[in-house]
Design a protein around this nucleic acid. Structure first.
Lengths: 232, 232
DNA sequence: TTTGTCTTTATGTAGTACATAAATACTAAT
DNA sequence: ATTAGTATTTATGTACTACATAAAGACAAA
């Protein structure tokens, strides 16, 4: 008989550390005082005393906010609020080794959804010069070399994101790519899509967004089919 | 004449704190030792001594990893690697007050891209019961009440994400909604879309994915048009 | 086999001390 | 008078010590 403490419907008691609490208190403080980037905070000692904790604990909590880019501290000047790097914090946890399988799977899907939905933004922002850049990437395509194929894949789709002009989208994609690659390697063999990169560029050039959307869907079809066959 | 130190093309020297360095070292350690969830780490004292820093500094770095859910520590047992909550870390920085305007704008676009690309996943996973739930939400629609309209908007689109069965996507969306709402309020007035929620449900029921995609695009048209007219 | 007690040990928290850099005021020199 | 140099102050950065606390393990008793 198993003696796991989590059995019998008992939920394990959550032992929140003081640091966790202080972090929460700090967040509440920022929100309730409606502080925004540029505003400055009280000194460490003032906050620590106000909260009734040691400066040590406070600093452990502040360290977290510093990592997220929410605050920046300089000697003598004190601490000021800053604009956090939204994707930077994502990047810190998005490592294949660390993320659990379900989440990895979800992210894999997420990436496909992005790819399919990107078309409108793409056509809105694309210019002649971009097409030439895409041509150059397509011309380099060497499907016989498997290790190169991945790089080219990244280059092509990465360029599409770049054309959208959405920096967040672009960075998001480049963060997702390694994970995507990881999932592909572990899950199944590669199936050649019916619509190639060259075909996609051709469709963009024709300027018909609907045809391009269909083309992209066909291009990603092997992945989509794979998803449909997986019972999570 | 301006005397800003950042002028004249000089990049300010980056003063990385010891804590930042230690955080990096820890990440390197995890990666190089190929540690994964479940594995345990050396004790604080051992790590601190190995790195040649005080236990204090080490704990400030560990505190960050703890927040991200990368490690969990228990007394006596020591520290073990855990699966980080990917979106949890995003949530910590995704507050309208903190995020800068450009990023906010990018995220706004990102949300639209997701919405447009979601269709394939949606049709792959939808069941009869879901349609009834959508019907119920649509029936509650009261466009005359502006504060309620937002809630209904969230309920409807949130349900769509839910149907995809992708937990990450669903949570992602629910995190983005407040920001989306924020951007809408600050940027421009609401334009009624030509295709209503009821129309969209009808299109799903017909089972034609292409028509649904077009419908969704029309539904989001006011937003898309707004994007096209903005010179970032 | 179970229960109770003791010891050990790694993390959690507090307090003190000092280094360091930056803002400010003040002084001296051209 | 403006600039350059110096001293002071102060808030953050880092280190060290001490002790509380909880959990694992060992051992003893029922």
């Amino acid at each position: 008989m198993s003696t796991k403490e989590t059995s019998m419907g008992f939920k394990p008691i959550e032992a929140t550390s003081l640091t966790d609490l202080v972090e929460l208190k700090l967040r509440d403080f920022l929100q309730e005082k409606k502080l925004k980037a540029g505003d400055s905070l009280p000194t460490e000692m003032e906050i620590a005393e106000a909260l009734g904790v040691s400066r040590n604990i406070l600093r452990e909590a502040l360290s977290r906010l510093r990592m997220l880019g929410i605050i920046t501290s300089k000697k003598k000047r004190g601490m000021v609020l800053t604009h956090p790097d939204v994707l930077g914090s994502l990047e810190k946890v998005l490592q294949p080794q660390l993320v659990d399988k379900n989440t990895l799977h979800d992210i894999f899907e997420l990436r496909l959804v992005l790819e399919l939905g990107m078309a409108d933004l793409l056509f809105m922002r694309i210019e002649e010069q971009h097409l030439e850049e895409l041509d150059k990437i397509v011309k380099n395509d060497d499907s016989t070399n498997p290790s190169f194929r991945i790089k080219n894949e990244i280059a092509f789709h990465g360029k599409l994101y770049e054309i959208t002009g959405n920096q967040t989208l672009k960075r998001f994609q480049s963060m997702l790519m390694p994970l995507f690659d990881f999932v592909l390697k572990t899950e199944k063999r590669v199936v050649a899509p019916k619509v190639s990169h060259a075909d996609l560029v051709e469709l963009i050039r024709k300027g018909n967004i609907d045809e391009f959307k269909k083309g992209m869907e066909e291009h990603l079809r092997p992945h989509l089919d794979a998803l449909a066959n997986i019972n999570k």
